[in-house]
Design a protein around this nucleic acid. Sequence first.
DNA 1: GATGAATGAGTCTTCATTCAT
DNA 2: TATGAATGAAGACTCATTCAT
Lengths: 228, 228, 228, 228
Amino acid sequence: MASLEVIQRAAVRLFAGRGFAATGIRELSGAAGLNSATLYHYAGGKEELLASIMRACLQALLRAGQQAVAGSDDPPVQLARLVRAHVAMESANPLTSRVTDHEVRSLTGGNRTEIMAMRDAYEGLFRDVLSKGRANGDFDIADLTTTRLAIMEMCNGVHNWFNPNGRLTRAALADRFADLACRMTGARAIGRREAGRPVDVPVLPSEPGPEPEPDQAEGDRGESPAAV
Amino acid sequence: MASLEVIQRAAVRLFAGRGFAATGIRELSGAAGLNSATLYHYAGGKEELLASIMRACLQALLRAGQQAVAGSDDPPVQLARLVRAHVAMESANPLTSRVTDHEVRSLTGGNRTEIMAMRDAYEGLFRDVLSKGRANGDFDIADLTTTRLAIMEMCNGVHNWFNPNGRLTRAALADRFADLACRMTGARAIGRREAGRPVDVPVLPSEPGPEPEPDQAEGDRGESPAAV
Amino acid sequence: MASLEVIQRAAVRLFAGRGFAATGIRELSGAAGLNSATLYHYAGGKEELLASIMRACLQALLRAGQQAVAGSDDPPVQLARLVRAHVAMESANPLTSRVTDHEVRSLTGGNRTEIMAMRDAYEGLFRDVLSKGRANGDFDIADLTTTRLAIMEMCNGVHNWFNPNGRLTRAALADRFADLACRMTGARAIGRREAGRPVDVPVLPSEPGPEPEPDQAEGDRGESPAAV
Amino acid sequence: MASLEVIQRAAVRLFAGRGFAATGIRELSGAAGLNSATLYHYAGGKEELLASIMRACLQALLRAGQQAVAGSDDPPVQLARLVRAHVAMESANPLTSRVTDHEVRSLTGGNRTEIMAMRDAYEGLFRDVLSKGRANGDFDIADLTTTRLAIMEMCNGVHNWFNPNGRLTRAALADRFADLACRMTGARAIGRREAGRPVDVPVLPSEPGPEPEPDQAEGDRGESPAAV
DNA sequence: GATGAATGAGTCTTCATTCAT
DNA sequence: TATGAATGAAGACTCATTCAT
């Protein structure tokens, strides 16, 4: 209920919809039920607001990625867990993810540097896993960079079309993407069982969502809130 | 050298860099070396300018996609050709493609409807090929929609990172992506030979590119202008 | 001293002088001693500003007209009182009246509809009085509509030439016009005595006037602030 | 069919509708079916165009007024003829009259001086007639200026409401106004017979009118094109 | 005679932000 | 903590006009 979170929620909804540059500070404060000057008190300005949202998103993503990788030493398993975690983040926070992915260019100076560094660190996780797995012979990859980028863009795409009330559950979606990633790398299929307990992924305070649904990535059998 | 093309080129460069909303009409006309009123004379306004760019891009993409599909009756071959054509378009027109992909939300009214319809028609090509190939037994696909979206996002990602002066040629890139798509669908690999003569893909008049390089998708041996 | 009134005053002066369309928002805010953005804060925009001025003017006019009619049941007396009230309004607020009379065409949508409805309601007062008086035999009128329009245009004309520092007082002017209206309708002359206490007419907050002179329609002996 | 007249016709229609300042040169040339540069060739610019329209209108009005006055030495007859002529001009050229009456303020420099001088000359006709008639004892007028202005505003009002397809013919309208003017001045009634042959009044080339109807002020018995 | 191109100055309006209260 | 007031700069767009063709 804290004001900053109310603001962030409104901001994410609007930034995801119209884009950062096309969103006015008055629309924003209006949507949050505040005076525009009050917004400055809590959020410190339009760009600071964006940066705080992206920072939190990337922190959570990075943390989830690190946990995913830490759960195993086997590159195929690591990759499957990494992809599952990423899809879980995207599907739990589609709007925040979209903003984080699209609006790096709207940051300036230190904010931009900082955010890009986090993004690069996250990408490093994929690079390392793929690289090690190819060296191991676990993966059959013609070009490392191309494959890494293809996998990442595929995963990032989720926030463009994911519908929390859609046909597939978030867990099923993660299954599908893990499988695709294994195929792309020529790895053996890593099923949900072999991947182990999924990484814990938060619903960010900035994510508007009708109801702040608890993470359901684990143990759900596909009957209820569906995706795609 | 026609004025409209000069304007479109400047527009694509700026729209791709800062986004449509963050680009001022004065920056735009300045970059095109024109008075801002002259820009209106030729381009009819900011949104009209964007729409004309996107329209041309999607027309070319749709045409390329239709040619790709028309070249064979075999779904795996069709898919490989479709992906190759898409990657060719993206790599020949990375900035225009980025704008076309990102700025649908900046359109209003009839422009938006029109552009979305073209985009949907293009997506239909992928849907049809995947669907037929799965029915045929050519593809091993768990969920059609997810796979289709994954492939398309992966391909669309190219405009986010492709560097015309990079390591891989555009043709090599197309090879890599065709292979990835085959793997994702569980199809047999369709090499460059089997895919046949690649679809002709234009460098759009709106694409700024350092040099308006002729299309090299075919018959290139990978040594010169490199990608990624 | 409230800012909106300062703005309205400047607006009326300029709109009356150059017309609404020919008056720039920068001239306007300059004349009011404000930044142009501040003008929007208070007045909500150029057309809204115009509408607020006209609304207030027509409200006062309508109210004065209703009081005039309510003061008697005798059509000649009602007409004389109506004309006196109208002339009083015009002479107390010549600039505001001019704007209100001339700029209906500059309004759009709901503002226009609203203002036209008020103007029609006011005209109805004249129509009813003339119609009843003719039926009574109090008036000798060949064509009702023509006579009504002639009287109203004659009265509206006051704002085109009235000079608060001129030769005639506002009260004397009202005498003259009441007499003319009686003649035009073939009614017996209704002197100031028979017409009774004149209707109270405000100097509108939008009226610039050198000095915000109190209404002197009653009991003035003609020596001081003169008209025409 | 001459181009200048086509332009003037379009201009009068637009100026009467939206006002001079609110009418763009491109709307104007568009309505005339010309390129905007061509308009400059024929009309010499926006203000020149307005001035030429007003000049012609005031010339015709002045000429008609002079003829009216010249037709008799009897002030009541002169007044009746003057009013008839004025109403005839207004009803034959309502749009041009409106423009001429409203847009003096849009002129600058020499154009303004010239037009105002013509208007003043025309007003002088009324002033002289009223003044002489009052000295004669033909008129019963309390205040010369007031009465003159009232009569003139009443007559000018015609262009605000006259409808060529309305209920009254133009001749009947002239009758009504002549009668009203006689009443206002306390003169004996001057019927159509006594007033004699009405002054010839042109339909100006600038007047748009559905059909360039010939002047019907004389001898028409009210059956066909009706007014008010 | 007629026009497309071109422009500098202008249009109204909204921007993100600050600050006194 | 919260906000109405205030603003300089910028937003997209239109203006009347000129001129080479």
